[in-house]
Amino acid sequence: MPDTALFPRPRWRAFRHPSGWLLAVQLLSLLLYAQLGDVDTQDRRVLFSAIALVVVPLAVWVVRRSPSVNWIAWLLAAPAIALSVSAIAFDRPDLVVWSSLLESALYFYAAGSLISYMLHDHVVTTDELYASGATFTLVAWAFAYAYLVCQSWYPGSFTGAVDPERPRVWLELLFLSVSTLSGVGNGDIVPMLPQARVLVMLEQMAGVGYIAIVVSRVIGLSIVRRRE
């Protein structure tokens, strides 16, 4: 038999970086949303829920790789998946609101776990580089779900340049979330009610804190490692 020290067994290296898979799936979902066009509301809900069924378990997988309590993630993910399936099967759009609330909590929890995972030592690994990108998308998705819940509970929370009186669709709220978190602030989707403005301000502070604490730390440690 060959010596395993000289001939190590091949591994699926991709599965060693669940943060990379999560980041890839969420970026791919953006391309899928872009292909929706002017489809009806039912199709939007089906695709929205189908993507959630993929992304939510990936978020739980990411939490499991970090030093966090995994059962909390599953406690949030399981009913979120069940509510998404029920919303499609029974044509109950009101269930999407509660599913979105749970998914928002799950993404915030997963993002916090990834931040803890990145800050637990002073070495920047490949997985932590993927985790820094995945954390950004998790926070952006979490606030987008929070915006969706806010709009459902407080109608008129957001307005936009196109059809200002109608509720904002999911992609518009995600666009607002990414713009706010990144500090771009394009401004074509605007919070109107106090509840919505508070959420936007919280995301602005989260974006500044993420860049100041996480991104700057990853860049600094990468520079130190290269010099060494």
Rank of each mutant, 00 (worst) to 15 (best):
L174V: 12
I81N: 00
F108Y: 12
T4L: 13
P167S: 01
E203T: 10
L148E: 14
A59D: 09
R197A: 01
A50D: 13
A144M: 11
L199E: 07
A105G: 05
L199V: 15
D188A: 07
S222F: 01
H120N: 05
G160W: 00
L30A: 03
G220C: 02
D91K: 01
E103P: 02
I219W: 00
A161Q: 04
Q26L: 10
Q42R: 15
L114I: 05
W71M: 07
A14L: 14
F158N: 09
L76C: 10
V224K: 13
P2K: 07
T159M: 01
P164W: 06
V69L: 12
L30S: 06
S182Y: 08
D127A: 05
A78T: 08
P155Q: 03
A144I: 05
I81Q: 06
A89S: 10
S49M: 06
N70E: 11
L31R: 09
P194R: 10
A24P: 00
S157P: 09
R65V: 02
A105V: 06
I115W: 00
S66G: 05
I72C: 06
G207T: 12
P2V: 02
A34M: 06
L148V: 12
E228G: 06
Y117I: 13
D43W: 14
T126Q: 13
R9I: 09
Q151T: 07
D127F: 03
L83Q: 03
G20L: 09
L22F: 11
A5D: 08
D40R: 03
D3P: 10
P79C: 10
W21N: 04
F90P: 03
V218C: 03
R11P: 01
I189Y: 00
I223S: 04
L221Q: 11
Q204I: 04
W98I: 11
R45H: 05
V198Q: 15
L32H: 04
A146F: 15
P155T: 04
G183T: 12
T180V: 08
H120E: 11
V25S: 03
E103T: 14
L174F: 09
S222C: 06
W170S: 03
